[in-house]
Design a binder for these strands. Structure first.
Lengths: 348, 348
DNA sequence: AACTACAATGAGCACGTTAACATACGGCAT
DNA sequence: ATGCCGTATGTTAACGTGCTCATTGTAGTT
């Protein structure tokens, strides 16, 4: 905190005497009733051209903007969605945010953004409380980290709630890129190309995304009856990928490496090459996220691409459906697609 | 559009009979007046413990949340800032957004995010109109592209407005990373290390950031009386950097290359090496943004780092100052810092 | 002339909250 | 007993908008 909070300044500072212009002010200047001003603002018929003109002039002169408070107090709706995210700066989240914002805009909604508290364990209930006191008609949570009260959380009555998460929720619709399915897809893709020794370099513990990607890989290997060696865990950075790639270079049986994200894949690939393993001739490498395009020159990494902007759009669509009366609770998983570049070879 | 917009659903859908719980409902259940409920909600003194308890129980039972509309109608403040950005997904913007959101939160503000319309020329006036009808106490614009009515734009009376932009504005405080100064800094840095033939690979035309970085480089060379060859222009991607790097490899006089961002620098560096120019022995390379850390293994690029999250925080600070009555219009430019890695050599 | 039909506008209320003022009550000094 | 004070609570009014209903004005029909 430190400084005074918004609530306090509200009463104290006000608009320093410059109280915003109201419809009554406009009506007075234009010599009409407030209701006529209201009609002009809302583009209703039944206003004669000359009156409309006079009102519009008065609005311009006074710099009138309809008060959101008054309007929504009457209508009951704000036209805003509350969105809560863990870490906006993580690459995937931004695209999703962007998708939500633009889909919302198309339906006349704005997006109010808050971040999860960082210190201490996270509880959806607390965030929901905070959002419920903001001018929002519903909520979207993006929970890609562990949440204490995930299962017992109950959405605020009257406020449709969607959760972006791989974990299913008993009362809320969840939506996410299919982090589990993408791994099975990659394993199938590699098996079709003759690979039987497929190792995995996963993201850090505590990351739900990393866990689901890992589980998908493990289940796919088990289902296919392939040998499954212990996966390694990095921290999503290229340098951690390099470090673990050095270890993996020792494994002469490995013919394919599936890495939990592209940056680590980049690191691992560099390490493999530096230690005499050719890519893709000796070892095929597949990443996830397709995040290197434009960042690295001549990007050749075969990877899985999720349309995260689309994920945001779909999230809003489900939100909008609930706003419109849809009651169904479902778990939507959006599939990724393999982007074939040049780091996978076919085994004889 | 296509579907109905928020405004329309407001009246039509309502909360489908589930009108939100009001203070009056709580008061009735607890057997007190609305005012007493209000006092409990706002943690005011002068409520006897037993009454408070009864009211709180009633609130819990009914699932009461104070209505933002009613509250702000009375108080005149919303506790929300409107933020308008061009493209959230551009790397720098996210960090800034994050800084604003977290600084705002510390002062009890939420951030309502909208994007600039994409089609057609952009006018601040239109965006301001849209924001002014949302529940916001002020606005922040992030304008890193050309805006049609930049100079003549007048902020909405009563709504403090800050613009994140290198261009100065006659009526609004502007703030930005010092895109101009960083280039001068880089040129000085290279001159101190004996370089006299410093070329520039700039970002695309139409990017204000690219223009200011270019102008800083040009002015610094002119001021030092150094030869200034025509700069090349890429599109921020590593591949465009590579392509132009191939051309620059022909220039045997060039001893230093200053590139408008790190990704192009990465591409250019790769091209230079591929064409027999050693980095940094033959050519020193400096980028801007420090955006490769964690993305590329063993990142060695010397670059300029801006603390963009800090930029967001500072932006909010200036906004908050204006909310508190500060009238001053200023142009704040936040300096970057050179991150020394291994792509600059000292000339004999 | 008296009527209906319709267009244009106005009056009044309701939404949920809170500041300002009003009331009730017990305790204490005069 | 009277007056005063402080605490706890209730009452009233106001914030700005938009819906419903009422009123006025105008044109057309009988």
């Amino acid at each position: 905190m430190g400084r005074s909070v918004a609530g306090e300044t509200g009463a104290a500072a006000g608009r320093r005497g410059t109280r915003a212009v109201s419809m009554a002010d406009v009506a007075r200047l234009a010599g009409v009733s407030r209701q006529t001003v209201s009609r002009v603002v809302n583009n209703q018929a039944c206003v004669v051209e000359e009156t409309r003109k006079r009102v519009e002039d008065a609005m311009d002169e006074l710099g009138f903007y309809p008060s959101f408070a008054g309007r929504s107090l009457r209508g009951g709706k704000y036209g805003c969605i509350g969105l809560c995210m863990f870490d906006i700066t993580r690459a995937g989240n931004v695209a999703t945010l962007d998708g939500i914002v633009s889909a919302a805009r198309d339906c006349g909604y704005a997006v109010t953004l808050v971040e999860f508290d960082e210190g201490g364990p996270v509880r959806l209930r607390n965030v929901a409380r905070r959002l419920a006191e903001l001018p929002v008609d519903g909520m979207i949570f993006n929970t890609n980290r562990a949440v204490e009260d995930f299962d017992e959380f109950k959405p605020v009555p009257g406020l449709p709630t969607i959760i972006i998460s791989m974990k299913e929720h008993p009362r809320c619709t969840t939506i996410d890129s299919d982090q589990y399915g993408c791994s099975r897809m990659v394993v199938d893709y590699l098996r079709e190309r003759g690979h039987a020794h497929i190792r995995h370099l996963a993201g850090p513990e505590g990351s739900i995304t990393a866990d689901f990607r890992l589980r998908g890989w493990a289940d796919a290997l088990d289902a296919a009856g392939l040998e499954r060696l212990e996966p390694l865990r990095g921290d999503w950075t290229a340098d951690s990928g390099y470090e673990l790639g050095v270890k993996l270079a020792q494994d002469k049986d490995m013919t394919a490496l599936y890495v939990g994200n592209d940056q680590m894949a980049m690191g691992a690939m560099t390490a493999l090459r530096a230690h005499g393993r050719r890519v893709p001739e000796d070892v095929s490498v597949v990443g996830v996220d397709d995040s290197l395009q434009g960042v690295v020159p001549h990007n050749t990494l075969t990877t899985v691409r999720f349309d995260l902007r689309e994920r945001g759009k779909r999230t809003f669509d489900h939100f909008f459906a609930q706003m419109s009366g849809e009651e169904r609770v479902e778990a939507v998983r959006l599939p990724g697609a393999i982007v074939e570049r040049a780091t996978v070879a076919v085994r004889p």
